[in-house]
Amino acid sequence: MTVEIALHRARVRYGPLEALHGVDLPVPAGRLTVLLGRNGSGRTTALRALAGTVPLAAGSVVWRGADVTRMPAYARARRGLALIPEVRAVFGSLTVAENLRLAARDGDTGPALAAYPELTRLLSHRADTLSGGEQRMLAVSRGLLSSARLVLLDEPGQGMSDAVAARTYELLGGLAATVVVAEQSLPPGLAAAATVVHELRRGNVVFSGEPAEAGAPWHTAAR
């Protein structure tokens, strides 16, 4: 298995509190990986550490064999990394159409509207007037429209109906990129799209394996 990016013995601290305790976390290339865990587990911190939006107190981030631990987030973005965070993932003062045009480097926003036809009637609306689920559809569209080779998403299904969330996971699983999704639960749609699951608990990786091995409680947990 070729590894796209990995955390090695990664530690992250927020003041006196340590959020990641020497985590090893490999992400296979060209696949969808899930970082699973409840609030406070460290899943979002691990995602941010990969993206470079939080610094490591110890350990390293290795991307395609190169140590990028000290590479700032904007440089990782230029290298082909796209991060869709849980909050502030869209430009609220811009319209839906403007948000999509910014994400589409070649100007073609068609793939996003094909994936989420619900956005078509909202093209002239400001993004900050959308519902939570609509904003998540718009945010995920960034990943669908970008030419990034590594796409990181924090709770892409948040606020979406079960049907739209399942469609989202299927779309992410079909991207020609390495995808990492941080979620609280593992619904069937996400389990079907994923290749590897890393479960985090209290800043530690407590399980790494295939989705079917992740344990029944996660499949029934509510988002």
Rank of each mutant, 00 (worst) to 15 (best):
R48G: 01
M1K: 15
E183S: 09
Q184E: 14
E155S: 05
A166Q: 09
P111N: 06
A177L: 07
H21I: 05
A104V: 11
P55L: 09
L36Y: 10
G174W: 05
D67P: 03
T45Y: 06
R201V: 11
V27Q: 00
M1A: 14
S147W: 03
A6V: 11
L20G: 09
V164S: 02
R202H: 15
L145K: 10
V23D: 09
L83Q: 03
G22R: 15
M137W: 01
E134A: 13
L171S: 13
L119A: 02
G159C: 07
A66H: 13
A73I: 08
E170M: 10
R121G: 08
L113D: 03
G203S: 10
R38Y: 00
E170V: 12
V34P: 00
A127H: 14
E213V: 01
V164D: 05
A194M: 02
A221W: 12
G173F: 05
G40P: 11
P156R: 06
A103R: 09
S131W: 04
T69R: 07
L94P: 00
A222C: 03
L145T: 04
G157M: 02
G42F: 13
A214D: 07
G65N: 07
E98C: 04
T129F: 01
P156L: 07
G107W: 11
A97M: 09
A139S: 08
Y74Q: 08
Y116R: 09
A192P: 00
D162M: 14
V87P: 00
A89N: 13
E18F: 13
L200F: 03
A222V: 14
A148G: 10
L122Q: 15
L153D: 05
G92N: 08
S124Y: 09
A127W: 07
L150T: 09
A46Q: 11
L153K: 12
A82L: 15
A177S: 10
A115H: 10
G132T: 11
A57T: 13
S141F: 06
G59C: 08
V54L: 11
Y74I: 01
W63I: 04
G203Q: 11
Q135E: 13
V140Q: 00
Y14L: 14
R105F: 10
T129G: 04
A177W: 07
H8S: 10
L119M: 02
A10P: 02
A46H: 12
P16D: 08
T45P: 10
L190C: 05
V3G: 05
S161V: 09
V90P: 01
V90G: 03
G209I: 03
R136I: 02
A57P: 03
A115W: 04
P111S: 06
L113F: 06
L81G: 02
